[in-house]
Design a binder for these strands. Structure first.
Lengths: 171, 171
DNA sequence: CGTGTTTGGTATAGTGGATAACAATTATCA
DNA sequence: TGATAATTGTTATCCACTATACCAAACACG
């Protein structure tokens, strides 16, 4: 028998509230306590917000952050295969297949059978992919990164990115 | 008819690589290009790494970041109901149910039917929950946050958290 | 040649997050 | 008061993302 990880909700909470503690406002914002000082918490919250903003800015081009990063890598590293691009981005190779299917079906990139190793597919941007990437970069620069820079100040934004990269790399 | 978002993989890439471009090292690390300057990218990467470290540090207590944050909120805000705790953490109420089931089945907290509003469940830490939280805090402080502080310097770590909170709040 | 490895791909499962709907309860207000 | 609306916890789904096992084709290499 397998130990179930799912809820074992049988006895519903029929218990009553014990003591009627001192009257509280009851509608005041909650106290985050040490949560506010936890790096992981603010990190996650900020990441969700930044991705949300990125998505809304990129709405006309219908590119997710992950798709945008793939196109960027293809542009700067033409001729690489799926394994190389995927692993650089921390994407599992099986999960990269559907992602490429999507980009290729939209005509943004192509898989070319490599002449030197017929197992691998060389990835290349199409003209449409390059044009889309140009527009995407402009959107990101004009409406996304600019907004963050306006909020933090450009030097702080750069320092922030540098610290995050260090954490990602060296922790 | 619905427009399918799924892959339309029919024609497999039988095309051949066109020109044999200039010889490349082929095994050099890829160039991240503007990806390295994108806040969203380093943010996501750092978040994954920090959560990974948190999980390994918290391994003996088997607490995820989300569970830890719930316990912290319960401690600092006893007597709040599920909706209040969940919404403060950005958790959808339906998704919070299974999470509470798990914590309650482990004896870390209880749902008490409120005397003032019999719809809602007042959330309280149990003694075991409080004891677990004490141990968890010590682990996080000693092995997690300390490590990040050693990497960045404490003042930088504080500045980092402050900037992230600002982004999460004001972007 | 035969063995082992790599590559892209399939199938599948787990997890996190989002929405619709519902019963019980409370709030609102004519 | 009584009818209607809103809220709370919950269930049932659904979708996106991630992780693992496995496979055939192609390659590496002794």
């Amino acid at each position: 028998m397998v130990i179930s990880k799912s809820p074992a909700r049988k006895a519903k909470p029929v218990r009553m509230q014990p003591k009627a503690a001192a009257e509280m406002p009851a509608d005041a914002p909650l106290d985050l306590g040490e949560l506010a000082d936890l790096l992981g918490y603010s990190l996650k919250r900020a990441q969700l917000r930044v991705f949300e903003d990125f998505l809304s800015v990129m709405n006309p081009l219908q590119l997710t952050p992950a798709q945008f990063s793939v196109l960027l890598l293809m542009e700067k590293n033409p001729g690489r295969n799926q394994t190389e691009i995927a692993s650089t981005l921390g994407i599992q190779r099986p999960n990269f297949v559907a992602m490429l299917d999507s980009l290729e079906s939209r005509g943004l990139c192509v898989r070319l059978r490599s002449v030197s190793d017929r197992r691998s597919h060389v990835l290349m941007l199409t003209d449409k992919g390059r044009a889309t990437l140009v527009r995407a970069k402009k959107l990101v620069a004009a409406k996304h990164e600019t907004r963050i820079s306006a909020l933090l100040g450009e030097s702080n934004r750069v320092a922030l990115v540098r610290m995050l990269a260090k954490v990602a790399r060296e922790l």
